[in-house]
Write a protein that binds this DNA or RNA. Structure first.
Length: 491
RNA sequence: GUCUCCUUCGUCUAGUGGUUAGGACACCGGGUUUUCAUCCCGGCAGCAGGGGUUCGACUCCCCUAGGAGAUGCCA
């Protein structure tokens, strides 16, 4: 490893499913590493034992392998700085924390959570001060003995300097300064359960894992001074910081579940393509130039540069993502589309049964060309084509009647179409030709002629191209559905 | 409340002192079309406000306003 190899990390905590914002952070880290010939490290920050779930851990792996983002070091990969689970590094943290305590940079705090809570309430009421009152910072003698006796599981707090200021340089934000008196007074670095907090673990790991750049969301900016103080206390050189713009929902608040799907697994099940997701989120806070907006992951791995990053928050636009998705679906080959839509069709038992039957393959192939230009989300395929697989469809009588016509006229059209069915062929051109002739004969537009048929066959005024649909359905079912329409119109 | 960050069309963005402020999504109109969609063409729409600096500010500085984030023994 050369002296100046860039090393970045994505450090999720397995407490929930991978969120679009987190994935975007991971992407930028990954791209930065790939574009510079650096290393991308995955580190699992599982120091919160309360909120940890195995599901969430699993989701990290499935999400990134689905997206095709691989890490150079991390769980399940041998790396020079293993282990990559923070829960397996507690001895390391303890050693460093003890070192801090010994040198007077940190101290034990025996305050009970009840006292802390009461204090917070009081502060809220009187609107005075905020944060820990540092009662244990200078404890000694009998006071110390008494406190020790009261609480056998003390936490360790970091001493924030009582005056002066702390500053750091951010690649994007520039210089950020903060008075030490404005920093959270003495944050906890070792919890009573023996696990470190984020602040400590992140600093120790980034240093020992030789991380050169921290790319993470801007919500972390306020806690950087704490980290800087920690680096100083250890006598370490901090990495370079680069705080990424946040991803917001439509209402301008931090993107969360109430804005819609936010976890990658949700996006996947709704039928978003990874290509679309990757492409879209790469453009959330980053751009290449003034016009180009289509990028594959491989291209991004070459083109990404940190200086094209934007610093203002961006709101997540589902509409644009959908548009990208449609674009990528259309780029796929027939076979690819087939594999993509198959699971969505099979979600419906009746549809699945037909697909697995003798005629299944033929219908499925037909469906592809019907929907290829029409899908925005893969899940749309089922409602769009279900009528081709089931025995019967329901429809409103009103829908059968073209605008400015009545039931009688609609019946007349239906009767005419029944005649036309006798001449129905494999050629859409021929079919269209004599349907058109019939429309002229009846003095109606082709669109109007087709409306009752469309509704009778598909159950909706909106459908894939009709003639192809009729062919796929088979004349027998077509006639049956048309008769049903006539019955309904007569009733 | 306090601290920190942010501010170009509704949204994502290009722009780094001199541009008719460009592109994309969305939206609206038109064309192609058997509905829908695709596709093509066109349109609407923006530099938050106020002060400076300058021959000249979207671009630099200051103030105001607005927005967001943080303020945990969560990350």
């Amino acid at each position: 490893m050369s002296e100046n190899t860039i090393r970045v990390r994505y450090a999720p905590s397995p407490t929930g499913y991978q969120h679009i914002g987190g994935v975007r952070t991971a992407l930028f880290n990954y791209l930065f590493a790939r574009a510079t010939g650096g290393k991308f490290i995955l580190r699992i920050e599982d120091t919160d034992q309360e909120r940890f779930t195995k599901d969430a851990l699993e989701d990290i792996y499935t999400t990134f392998s689905w997206l095709g983002m691989d890490w150079d070091e991390g769980p399940d990969k041998e790396g020079p700085f293993a282990p990559y689970f923070q829960s397996q590094r507690t001895e390391l943290y303890k050693k460093h924390i003890m070192d801090l305590v010994d040198r007077g940079e940190a101290y034990y705090c025996y305050c009970s959570s009840e006292r802390l809570e009461a204090m917070r309430e009081e502060q809220q009421k009187t609107k005075k001060g905020s944060g820990y009152d540092r009662r244990c910072r200078e404890l000694s003698g009998v006071e110390l003995e008494k406190a020790k006796a009261e609480n056998p599981n003390p936490v360790v707090r970091l001493k924030i300097p009582l005056n002066g200021e702390t500053s750091f340089d951010d690649i994007l934000l520039g210089s950020v300064k903060r008075k030490n008196t404005d920093i959270n007074p003495d944050p906890v670095i070792l919890k009573s359960d023996g696990f470190p907090t984020y602040h400590l673990a992140n600093v120790v790991d980034d240093h020992t894992m030789e991380i050169t750049h921290i790319l993470r969301a801007q919500e972390w900016v306020p806690s950087v001074p704490i980290h800087v103080i920690l680096y100083k206390a250890f006598g370490w050189e901090p990495p370079k910081f680069c705080h990424l713009p946040m991803v917001m929902g439509k209402d301008g608040q931090k993107l969360s579940k109430r804005h819609g799907s936010t976890s990658l697994r949700d996006f996947k099940t709704e039928g978003y393509l990874k290509e679309a997701i990757l492409n879209y989120i790469a453009l959330l806070g980053w751009s290449f130039d003034d016009t180009r907006e289509f990028f594959t992951l491989a291209e991004l791995e070459k083109l990404f540069t940190i200086d094209k990053l934007n610093k203002s928050a961006s709101t997540f636009d589902y509409k644009k993502l959908e548009w990208f998705n449609g674009q990528y679906i259309r780029q796929k080959s027939k076979d690819e589309v087939k594999n993509l839509i198959l699971p969505y069709l099979k979600e419906d038992e009746k549809v699945a049964a037909v697909i697995d039957s003798d005629k299944g393959g033929e219908i499925l192939d037909g469906v592809i060309s019907l929907v290829h230009e029409r899908l925005k989300l893969l899940k749309d395929v089922l409602p769009l084509t279900r009528f081709l697989f089931v025995d019967e469809v329901d429809f409103e009588t009103e829908e059968l009647i073209p605008k400015k016509m009545d039931a009688l006229a609609a019946i007349k059209i239906c009767e005419k179409i029944k005649e036309l069915f006798g001449r129905f062929s494999d050629s859409d051109e021929e079919n269209e030709a004599f349907f058109r002739a019939a429309a002229d004969e009846l003095g109606v537009k082709l669109g109007d002629l087709l409306q009752p048929l469309r509704v009778a066959i598909t159950g909706s005024k909106v459908s894939p191209p009709l003639f192809e649909s009729l062919g796929l359905l088979g004349m027998e079912k077509c006639i049956k559905r048309l008769n049903k329409a006539i019955d309904q119109l007569k009733a």
